[in-house]
Amino acid sequence: MLQYASLTGVMKTILIILLVYYGIKILSRLFAPALLRYVTKKAEKQFGQQFNQYNSRQEQTKKEGEVSIDKMPNSKSSNKTVGEYVDYEEID
């Protein structure tokens, strides 16, 4: 059985779609700033906690005036077969 869409049914559908679209658009303009503020405050709090944990960990391991070496430099042996070093002076 074949059914045809009536003009009023099509108009109602288009009207409902437009109302939903503009309703979401208006509500997002009202609630988006509050939502963004909430998200930024939450992220700021989380980053602050991570920063404090990092600082407290460093304070526990290092006392004032104490020197620590994290990585020893690789000892490079000079290659004597490269050539002779010649001292020079710059002439103006």
Results as ranks from 00 to 15, higher is better:
Pro73Trp: 02
Glu44Cys: 01
Gln60Phe: 02
Met11Lys: 12
Arg29Ser: 05
Tyr88His: 05
Leu35Ala: 14
Phe51Val: 01
Glu89Ala: 12
Gln49Thr: 10
Gly9Pro: 00
Asn52Glu: 15
Tyr88Val: 13
Ile91His: 08
Gln58Trp: 04
Ile69Asp: 06
Ile17Trp: 05
Gly83Asp: 08
Leu15Cys: 04
Tyr4His: 12
Gln50Ala: 11
Met72Gln: 14
Asn74Tyr: 07
Met11Ile: 11
Ser75Ile: 11
Met1Phe: 05
Leu35Pro: 00
Phe47His: 06
Gly65Phe: 02
Asp92Ala: 04
Leu18Arg: 04
Tyr85Gly: 09
Tyr4Arg: 14
Lys63Ser: 15
Val67Lys: 03
Asp70Phe: 05
Leu19Ser: 07
Lys12Glu: 07
Glu64Asn: 07
Gly9Ile: 00
Lys76Val: 10
Ser68Lys: 09
Glu89Gly: 00
Thr61Asp: 05
Phe47Ala: 15
Val67Trp: 03
Ile26Asn: 09
Val82Arg: 15
Arg57His: 10
Gly65Asn: 03
Leu19Tyr: 06
Gln46Ser: 13
Gln46Tyr: 02
Ile69Leu: 08
Lys41Thr: 12
Phe51Asp: 03
Leu7Ile: 14
Leu35Phe: 06
Leu15Ile: 08
Thr40Met: 02
Leu36Asn: 12
Gln50Phe: 03
Lys63Ala: 12
Gln58Met: 13
Asp87Asn: 11
Tyr85Ala: 15
Gln58Asn: 11
Gly65Pro: 00
Ala43Glu: 15
Arg57Trp: 07
Gln49His: 03
Tyr85Ser: 14
Ser28Phe: 04
Pro33Trp: 01
Lys42Glu: 12
Ala43Pro: 00
Ile14Arg: 07
Val10Thr: 10
Thr8Gly: 01
Ala32Tyr: 09
Tyr54Thr: 12
Leu2Asn: 10
Thr8His: 09
Lys62Met: 14
Gln60Thr: 12
Asn52Val: 09
Gly83Pro: 03
Ser68Gln: 11
Gly65Gln: 04
Thr40Ile: 05
Lys45Ala: 14
Val67Gly: 05
Thr13Asp: 11
Leu2Ser: 09
